[in-house]
């Protein structure tokens, strides 16, 4: 098992009730798997699935990115509920 730190912002923080938490996850767990773990623990997070960006150590990563010991993970919803802009491709939605 490895330990990672998860930062919660805005609506996520309101749902979770804390600005950050430490989680134990399996070796080689992915950020997408961690998100599913969080949704199971906090079902109200489910509404964000599919319109999130994932970041590890302040860098955007793909959903399949593997976590490492002491990583800082953040889930970033669009600032105003989604982009209306078709030509600005948004990578890494999970």
């Amino acid at each position: 098992m490895i330990t990672v730190r998860v930062r919660f912002f805005a609506g996520h923080r309101d749902i979770v009730g804390q600005a950050e938490q430490t989680y134990e996850v399996a070796d080689h767990a992915t950020v997408a798997e961690l998100w599913q773990t969080l949704v199971t623990a906090y079902p109200r997070l489910a509404g964000y699935t599919g319109r999130l960006l994932f970041a590890v150590n302040q860098t955007f990563v793909e959903p399949s990115a593997q976590l490492h010991q002491d990583d800082e993970v953040a889930f970033i919803p669009p600032v105003s509920g989604g982009t209306e802009d078709a030509n600005a491709a948004v990578p890494y939605y999970c």
């Binding site: 960006l53 955007f60 982009t83 802009d85 600005a88």
Partner: peptide
Amino acid sequence: EYIMDRIKAIAPIWKQ
């Protein structure tokens, strides 16, 4: 305009 669109899409900034 592109920069503003991208800020709204990916910048880790939230509005309440």
